Simulated scan of single mutants.
Amino acid sequence: MYKPSYGYFIILIFLTLGVTACSSSSIHDSGETATAKVKQEDTGYYPDKKADKAKNVVCDDPKPLSDEDFEISYRSHKIDKKTDIKELIRNWGYGEGYDNFNRGYISGNGTYRRWNLYYPNYEDPEIDFVVLSKIELEGEELVDGESYLVAVSLENPKFKTKRGLKIGDTLGKVLQLYGQPSTITNRSLVYSENGLHLDIYWDTKTEKVDNIFIEYNMEKSVEQQRSADYVEEDAQPDPDLEPYTIQKEQSFTTTLNGWGDVKFISTLKDEETNDLIHAKFFLEVNNDKNVENKILYEFPEFYGNNGKMIDRIKAVSFKDLNQDGRTDIVIIADYITGVNAHGIETLPVAGVYFQKKDNTYTTLPELDKSINQTGHNRTLQNVIQYVSKQRINVQ
């Protein structure tokens, strides 16, 4: 069963179509032109190759989304942004197993409770209503006060969206019914309109839909719950709770000038947060002792984050590129360019960190731009050879 994310999505990647039919091409390592492609003319390199002939997906141009596309029907009851949760409970109860599953608890504080309302039961649900309730005191008991529908998760293939999509359908059918998405993450497509979001998740092995998640009031619920988490007006989240996930395969123990033995940490921003999935890099203390602050240094913004959604950190190299006796760092990542019936499509993007005399690091955006626009971004050797031919003086 899919466990829904409880952050909210904003439009991450704006896709444009070159044709009105929603045909799609296969994914190839050679980087052939994707059916749906992010326009980033100033920062990206796109090989001038023709797309393959469309496979598996042929359709008329899907009509634009409307509020009705985010409605579903359950037990002959229309579910939408204005659904009255208390009325559902009066009609259907709380679902079998509600108390045994900690009353559907997801998260909470002293003000709000976020919880799941599963039907017909909590062991094998057909549908999941995500609810935010204000906590109130009734006598000596805490109860759910004002409540509203945050989102709905379809858990059974017998339930369909307004356009007929269900669990088990192919990515090709998604594109047939809805066209290209507003947003792509590494395993979901998001269609957005008027603050409503249809999140379609797929199994990367079977290339079929395994969850349909409709967000009605996600932004409102996150803001309310977050504001209640911090008592002090100017309180800030703990920096250790930054929404980044360590990429272990591209994190290394190394020795750097002026830093000694350190850990170079590659991270990606968690896709459950509100923003683009970006890459971020840190130096950490290289020991297991319990120190107050393990982070020694935060690297400048990675060039590949420039308007792109990073899919993965592909390669890292530590090398003196300009023969000044200091250790420079080359990063190559893959970023998402579009989606077809077989999944996401990616292209590489490279960036270089040059070490300065004070041992901190800097970037040269014009050089990074040139590396990527000329196509010298596919392997570490490509980048190193290209940069080594340039005259670079970093103070």
Rank of each mutant, 00 (worst) to 15 (best):
Leu196His: 09
Cys22Met: 11
Asn116Ser: 07
Arg113Ser: 09
Pro62Thr: 01
Arg163Trp: 02
His77Lys: 06
His278Met: 05
Phe70Val: 05
Glu284Ser: 09
Leu137Cys: 00
Tyr8Glu: 03
Glu284Gln: 05
Gly97Trp: 12
Lys81Gln: 12
Tyr244Leu: 06
Tyr105Lys: 15
Ile85Leu: 04
Ile167Glu: 01
Arg326Asn: 13
Asn377Arg: 06
Gly97Asp: 06
Lys158His: 01
Ser133Gly: 05
Gly325Asn: 06
Ile265Lys: 13
Val38Gly: 09
Ser73Arg: 05
Tyr297Trp: 12
Thr255Val: 14
Ser266Pro: 08
Gln395Ile: 07
Phe302Glu: 12
Ala151Asp: 08
Glu87Gln: 13
Ile79Cys: 08
Ser133Thr: 14
Ile79Gln: 03
Phe159Arg: 02
Leu198Phe: 09
Gly44His: 07
Asn293Pro: 00
Gly31Glu: 03
Leu268Phe: 10
Ile344Ser: 04
Glu249Trp: 03
Asp311Gly: 12
Glu126Val: 10
Phe159Tyr: 15
Ile295Glu: 13
Ile79Val: 15
Glu271Tyr: 03
Lys356Val: 00
Thr245Ile: 15
Tyr297Glu: 00
Thr379Ser: 15
His197Thr: 11
Ile127Lys: 05
Asp60Leu: 07
Cys22Ser: 08
Leu15Pro: 05
Glu155Asn: 12
Phe282Gln: 03
Gln176Ile: 02
Tyr119Phe: 15
Lys269Ser: 08
Glu123Ala: 15
Lys50Ile: 12
Glu272Trp: 01
Ser188Cys: 04
Val174Asn: 11
Val130His: 03
Ser388Ala: 14
Lys81Trp: 07
Glu219Arg: 14
Asn290Lys: 13
Pro125Trp: 14
Val190Trp: 05
Pro157Gln: 07
Thr255Met: 06
Ile10Pro: 00
Pro348Gly: 04
Lys173Gln: 12
Asn217Ser: 05
Leu380Gln: 08
Leu15Asp: 11
Leu65Phe: 02
Glu271Pro: 14
Arg187Val: 05
Ile332Asp: 11
Thr83Tyr: 03
Arg226Phe: 03
Asp67Asn: 15
Leu268Arg: 04
Asp42His: 07
Asp203Ile: 03
Leu296Met: 13
Asp210Lys: 09
Ile384Ser: 05
Leu268Asp: 06
Tyr98Gln: 04
Val330Ile: 15
Lys55Glu: 08
Leu175Cys: 02
Ile214Thr: 13
Asn156Met: 01
Gln390Thr: 03
Ile167Trp: 02
Glu71Cys: 11
Lys248Asp: 15
Asn91Trp: 07
Gln176Lys: 15
Phe129Gln: 11
